[in-house]
Design a protein around this nucleic acid. Structure first.
Length: 103
DNA sequence: CGAGTGACGGACG
DNA sequence: CCGTCCGCCACTC
């Protein structure tokens, strides 16, 4: 698999997270056949072109918390996007028991 | 080549 | 529910 194909796979996996559900970076990496590559998913997301229509907000860390990124799209925005589609929070963390994506 | 650095994950107290 | 420490891996300098 070429690096480009890996990236496409990661993007397609994220694209298939259903509304109202979330997945962790590590979970996506695992589904892509790359265990222990959670950080790769983070990088892929960080370098996502503006135009690409991807539900990036449905990816959180393993604890259900929102990981830091550019000031561009704040943590508050991601939380609002999730809550808008029915994702419930417990404090600062997504209720993973309820919303973790399990294909 | 070694040290530092992350949109990370897990164990432990 | 913290904070801390450590493992991990691609990338940068």
């Amino acid at each position: 698999m070429t690096p480009e194909e890996i990236l496409e796979l990661i993007y397609s996996l994220i694209a298939s997270i259903p509304r109202g559900h979330v997945a962790s970076y590590g979970q996506i990496a695992g589904m892509a056949g790359l265990p222990r590559h959670a950080r790769l998913v983070g990088r892929a997301l960080r370098e996502t072109p503006e135009g690409m229509d991807l539900p990036w907000h449905r990816v959180v860390n393993h604890a259900g918390a929102i990981s830091a990124r550019n000031a561009r799209s704040s943590e508050r925005d991601q939380r609002h996007l999730l809550e808008a589609e029915g994702v419930r929070f417990r404090g600062e963390r997504v209720d993973m028991r309820r919303h973790r994506w399990e294909p």
